[in-house]
Design a protein around this nucleic acid. Structure first.
Lengths: 335, 335
DNA sequence: GTGAAAGCGCTAACAG
DNA sequence: CTGTTAGCGCTTTCAC
C-alpha cells in the first residue's frame, strides 16, 4: 500500500518561486492573486504533475467533502435507484460518496457507522436496517456528524431528519383501487413485520378495508422474505386456502414479480381472474407481461431530498429535525 | 461542514497518563505493550468516546485503506452485481470503497479519476466507458496508483490487469445453441459497436455462423442503445423484414427483455415460433415468462477477482499485467 | 515497554 | 498581493 511519493505543494511553490501559502491560494481558486503569479504557478503544477491532496487539506481545515451512504443492499432496484438520486445530488455539490452495504445485518451496520466516523465523512445518509434504535444512530450526532434517515424509520423517528414515502397512504391507494375493481378478498403478501415500512403498508391495507366496511381475514396476510421466491411461496399458500383471494397487494414489486410467476404457474390469468398491485415502481414493473400495477415510491426523489437535507445540515442551516414525506402515486397498468 | 472537535489520541494519552506514542501503538493493536497500560488506555478511550481518525493516520503513514470503484451506472443489474462482488471481497480485506458512476460520459470519468487521485485511494477498479484509451488510465499508474480494469477493455488491453468474461466464446455458445435448435436466420440485436464487449459478442456470433457454414445477413444486425426500449425497437425492425429471423441473440439480458416485450406485442410465441438468447444472466432472466435462456457472465465473480487482483497489486505482489478471462456458460431455459 | 521530537501535505492567521 | 509561522491528528524514528 506504500505509494510513490507525490509532488507536494511545497515543491510546486519552490519551482514557481513563490511561497507555499500562495500556491495554496491558487489551487483553491482564490481571486486575490495576480494573474502573472497564478499563471506561473499553474504552469509549474502542470510541469510537475501536481495532484491536490484533498485528504491533507481536509485534515488541516477540519472540513469534509465526503458523505457516507449506508444501504441494505444494492441488488434491489429500489435502493439502487435511491443511490442514483443521492449520487446525482451530492455530485452537484461536490461531495464524494462512500458506500456501505449492510445486507441487513446489525453487526455490519454498526461496523459501517464506525467506518464512516473514522473516515471523518461530513455526514451520513442511512436506510437503517429493521430494528435499528435511535441510540445506534445518536452516536454519530453526538460526535457532531449530521445524519439523514431515508426510506425506513428508526425506533424514535422524530429525532432525525427523515425522507420517505407515505407508506400508509400507499397501501390505501392500492387497496382502494382493488376494491373499486370489485374485489372483496384481498391478500397482503410478502415482507415481515419487523420493518416499519411493512407495518405502514399493512396499516394502509387495514384502514382501506375497514373504511370500505370489509373485514380482514388473517389467513390472507402472509409474511415472507422480501424476494421473488417469497412472493411465489406466499401466493401458493393463499391459493390453497378454501376461500382463496381474488386479488393481492404485495409488499413491493420484487415480491409482486414472484407472485406473478406463482399465478402463471397456477394457470391464473393476471388482470382478468386476479388483480395484483405492487409497490415501489421499479423499472421492471412496466416491462413484465402483463405490466404491473404498482404504487410509485419515487426512490430517485427520496435520494435527492435526503441529499439536500444532509447538505443543509452540513452547512449548519437546519434547526430541528425535518421530515419529508412523499405522496405515493398509484400507477395503473395491466395487472 | 465544520465539525465539533473530537477527542484526540493526545487527550486519551493524557487521561491515561501515558504518551501519545504508546496510545498510538495500542489503537493499532500492538502486542508489545504491557497488559496493564493497555487496559488503562482502552478504558480511557471508552470514557472519553475516542474515535480513531483514519484520515490523519493514513496521511502520516502514507498508506491508504480505500479503493475507488468506477462504473458506468448502478441501475444495470449486471453492474450492481459486480459491485456486490467487489464490495464483499474488499470488505474482507478491510478496505472501504469510494463509488463513482460515469453514466458513460467521458468528462465524468475523467473527473472521477481525478477525484480518486485527490482522495489518495489505494487503488482503482474501473469499468471504462467505451472509447477509453489506455492513456486516460495510465495517468493513475504513473502516480503509483494500482488499477484493475473490469468487464470492458481499453484501447490497449495488455497494459493493465483485467478481469472479464470471454465474450467471443459467449456469443458462440449462444449461436451454437440456436443452430442446434434448427435456426438458420438468427438476428443479433442491441448494443453499439463502440464497445469492446459488443464487438466480441458479435465476433462470436459471426464465427459460429461461419463455422456452421451459414451466411451472415447484415440486415439481421441491429445496433441500439442498451435498454429495453432498444430491444423493443430492434425486434420490430427485423420482424418487418421480407425474411424475418426465427431466432435472436441479444447483446444482453436487458435488451433481451425488451425483445421479449416486442415479440409478445407481435403475438409471437417465444420458445416455440421464436427462440431467444440473452447475455449476463441477471436475476430477472430466470423470473420472466417464459424464462430467458442466456449466457452467464458471472458478474459477482468478476467483482471478486478484480478485487483480488487489485489487492495483490496494492501489496506490491504483482509483476506484469494479469488477465483473468472467465468462461461463460449457457443457461438453457424456456426462451 | 515507553517517551520525546519530528513531520505527512496542507490551510489559517497574521504580517508586511 | 505574498510570505511567515504554527499546527490539524496521527505515526515514526530513536532514545532511554
Amino acid at each position: 500500500m506504500k505509494k510513490r511519493s507525490r509532488v507536494t505543494l511545497q515543491q510546486v511553490a519552490q519551482h514557481a518561486g513563490v511561497s507555499r501559502a500562495t500556491a495554496s491560494l491558487i489551487v483553491r481558486g482564490s481571486e486575490s492573486i495576480s494573474k502573472e503569479t497564478k499563471e506561473k504557478v499553474l504552469q509549474s503544477m502542470k510541469e510537475l504533475g501536481y495532484v491536490y491532496d484533498r485528504i491533507a487539506a481536509n485534515l488541516r481545515s477540519q472540513h469534509s467533502s465526503t458523505v457516507g451512504f449506508i444501504i441494505s443492499e444494492i441488488g434491489n432496484p429500489f435502493f439502487s435507484e435511491v443511490l442514483v438520486g443521492v449520487h446525482k445530488a451530492l455530485d452537484k455539490e461536490g461531495y464524494t460518496v462512500i458506500l456501505g452495504t449492510t445486507f441487513d445485518l446489525m453487526a455490519k451496520q454498526q461496523a459501517l457507522l464506525s467506518t464512516m466516523l473514522e473516515y471523518r465523512v461530513g455526514g451520513v445518509i442511512i436506510s437503517p436496517i429493521p430494528g435499528t434504535s435511535h441510540e445506534d444512530i445518536e452516536r454519530l450526532e453526538q460526535l457532531g456528524m449530521p445524519v439523514v434517515i431515508a426510506t425506513r424509520e428508526t425506533t424514535f423517528p422524530e429525532k432525525f431528519d427523515y425522507v420517505g414515502v407515505d407508506n400508509v397512504l400507499g397501501g390505501k391507494l392500492a387497496i382502494q383501487h382493488l376494491i373499486e375493481k370489485g374485489h372483496r378478498r384481498i391478500a397482503f403478501l410478502g415482507g415481515t413485520n419487523d420493518s416499519s415500512v411493512w407495518r405502514d403498508r399493512m396499516r394502509g391495507y387495514m384502514d382501506a378495508l375497514v373504511e370500505a366496511g370489509f373485514e380482514v381475514d388473517p389467513a390472507l396476510l402472509v409474511e415472507t422474505p422480501v424476494s421473488r421466491k417469497g412472493g411465489m411461496d406466499a401466493i401458493k399458500q393463499v391459493l390453497s386456502l378454501p376461500q382463496p383471494p381474488t386479488a393481492a397487494f404485495c409488499y413491493n414489486d420484487i415480491v409482486a414479480l414472484g407472485v406473478m410467476s406463482g399465478l402463471k404457474d397456477a394457470g391464473i390469468h393476471i388482470g382478468q381472474e386476479f388483480n395484483l398491485v405492487g409497490f415501489d415502481n421499479i423499472q421492471e414493473a412496466s416491462m413484465v407481461t402483463p405490466s404491473l400495477t404498482t404504487v410509485d415510491a419515487f426512490p430517485h426523489a427520496i435520494g435527492e431530498y435526503a441529499s439536500d437535507l444532509l447538505h443543509q445540515r452540513m452547512m449548519g442551516l437546519s434547526e430541528g429535525p425535518k421530515r419529508i414525506i412523499l405522496k405515493p402515486e398509484l400507477i395503473v397498468r395491466e395487472s
